[in-house]
Each structure stands twice: as C-alpha cells, then as structure tokens.
C-alpha cells in the first residue's frame, strides 16, 4: 500500500499524468450525464453503434494520413447519429436492425481498410489500440487537452442549462411536445452531443468500450437513487471517481487504461446492484 502511494507521488510530477486525468475525468463525466438520458430513453444501443462508426472513420482517417483525424471522424459520427435517430423514430421495428447493420459494417470496413492500405508495420496493434484504447491518452498534447476541456465544459453547460427541458422530454416526449417544447430539436441535439462524446471518449477507452462509460454510471446510480436529480448527481460522481481511480490504477499496475477504467465501473455497478437489492428488502 505504501509503495502504491509512493509511486503515485512520482507520477503526479509528470504533466502527462495530469493531462490524462483531466481529460479522462471530463470525458467520463460528459458520457455519464448524457448516458442517463440515453439509458432512460432506451437508446443505449445507439451509443454502441456510433462508436463502431467512429472506429471505421478513424481507420479511414489513419489510412489517408490526415494530420487532424478529428476533422473526418467527428462529422462522420455526427452524421451517423442523426441518421440513426431519424430511422429509430419513424420505423420502430427497423431501427435496431439499422444500427446493427451500420455498426458491424463500419467495424468490418474499418479493419479491412486498415489491413489493405495501412503503411504501418503493426496493423493488428493499431486496430487493437483503437478498439480497446491505446496509450494515446498518456501522450496527449496541450492542444488535445484544450479541445477536450472546451468541448466538455460546453457539453456540461448545455446539460445544466436545459436540465428541466431534458427531463420533460425524457420522461414523456408527447407531453413535452404538447406544451410546446420542440422535442425534435432536443433529439437532434442529443444525437450530436452523443456523437461528440463518443469521439472524445475514443482516446480514453477505445471504441469497443465506450458504451461502458455511457451506461454503467447511469445504471449503477439507478440501482439506489429514486429521483432524476439524484440519479444525475450520483452518476456524475461515480463517473468522476471511477475514471480517476481507474487511470491511476492502470498507471501503477501498468495495465491498459481503457479496460482498467471499465473494470472499475463494472465493479462499482456490481456493488451498487447488491446495495440496491439490500436496501429494497
């Protein structure tokens, strides 16, 4: 235990550790806030599908040797989000099938493109890195940090500003529309922000594990909290704590960052489920 803290102290003297912590915590926080809405609207699978689309776009961006990969990945993911939400609304039955098609399609194409055209010697390593999170979270530049901080602050500000409307639309969309809230605008806004969060979170946990950041805090919080406000606050706290702890743990025991954070979230979820069961008896 003592050694654990000693080595932590060493780590805190490096800038890259601080960068990783700040970005990791902010991204997890955003994912958790909007995760509450996605889970309650039964849209969790959209997050999963989008993350695969983001992987496909990233593969293409890598092959094209783009200097700023975000410029391709972000628009493609946002577009996919908008399309998915539209199909989900109008044709209820085909919505989840569309997501399945899009997500496996993007996954397969992404790998194919990388395998065929990549100049890198270690294609399997690259692919594995973008699926499960590489160490890129530990090699963030100052510019990466700022982009991430600004986007996260924007996302959190939007959530707090529109908190009451978000609740109304999530709880009962028909009622909200009847009293004059433009729910379709909110759904569009939800799709775009989900896409932004997914692109941000790819650096942290990789595209296969992003859904974990989105659903676990909300699900854990819902095991023990009975009001919307409490669920939101609790999942924000959980996300912050789990990602900070997960990142530090991965540094100390030198495991991959993404899976470690997700494992911590999973453990929290199990603990909260158990607590919820005990409380309800």
């Amino acid at each position: 235990m003592k050694e654990f803290f000693l080595s932590l102290q060493d780590y805190f003297s490096y800038d890259f550790v601080w960068y990783a912590l700040i970005v990791g915590v902010l991204v997890a926080l955003c994912a958790a806030l909007f995760g509450v809405i996605l889970v309650l609207k039964r849209f969790s699978f959209i997050g999963d599908g989008l993350s695969h689309v983001a992987f496909g776009a990233l593969a293409i961006a890598a092959v094209m040797n783009l200097t700023n990969q975000m410029l391709l990945v972000l628009p493609v993911t946002v577009l996919a989000a908008v399309l998915l939400l539209k199909t989900g609304q109008h044709t209820k039955l085909k919505g989840d099938a569309a997501i399945a098609v899009l997500s496996v399609g993007a996954l397969a194409l992404g790998y194919l493109v990388m395998d065929l055209f990549s100049a890198s010697a270690n294609v399997a390593g690259d692919v594995c890195g973008s699926l499960f999170g590489s160490f890129s979270i530990l090699t963030l530049s100052r510019a990466d940090l700022w982009v991430c901080v600004i986007l996260s602050v924007l996302v959190i500000a939007l959530f707090t500003l529109f908190y009451h409307r978000i609740f109304a639309v999530t709880f009962d969309e028909d009622f909200a529309r009847a009293v004059g809230v433009r729910a379709s605008v909110y759904n569009l806004f939800l799709a775009i922000i989900t896409a932004v969060i997914i692109v941000l979170a790819m650096k942290l946990v990789g595209s296969l594990l992003i859904s974990a950041l989105i659903v676990f805090p909300a699900l854990s919080a819902m095991r023990v909290c009975r009001s919307f406000k409490r669920v939101v606050i609790c999942s924000a706290i959980l996300a912050t704590a789990c990602s900070a702890f997960g990142i530090l743990l991965s540094l100390v025991v030198s495991t991959p960052v993404g899976p470690t954070v997700v494992a911590v979230e999973l453990a929290t979820f199990l603990i909260f489920s158990l607590t919820g069961k005990l409380l309800r008896r």
């Binding site: 309650l40 009451h164 609740f167 009962d172 009622f175 819902m222 009975r226 009001s227 406000k229």
Partner: peptide, 13 residues
C-alpha cells in the same frame, strides 16, 4: 427514476 415533485414541475416546462 423521478420524484412526484419532478414530474409535477415538468408541467411548467
């Protein structure tokens, strides 16, 4: 997860 107060308040939206 919503309290009665939250639901009623959402009428003011």
């Amino acid at each position: 997860p919503a309290s009665v107060m939250e639901v009623v308040l959402s009428g003011c939206v």
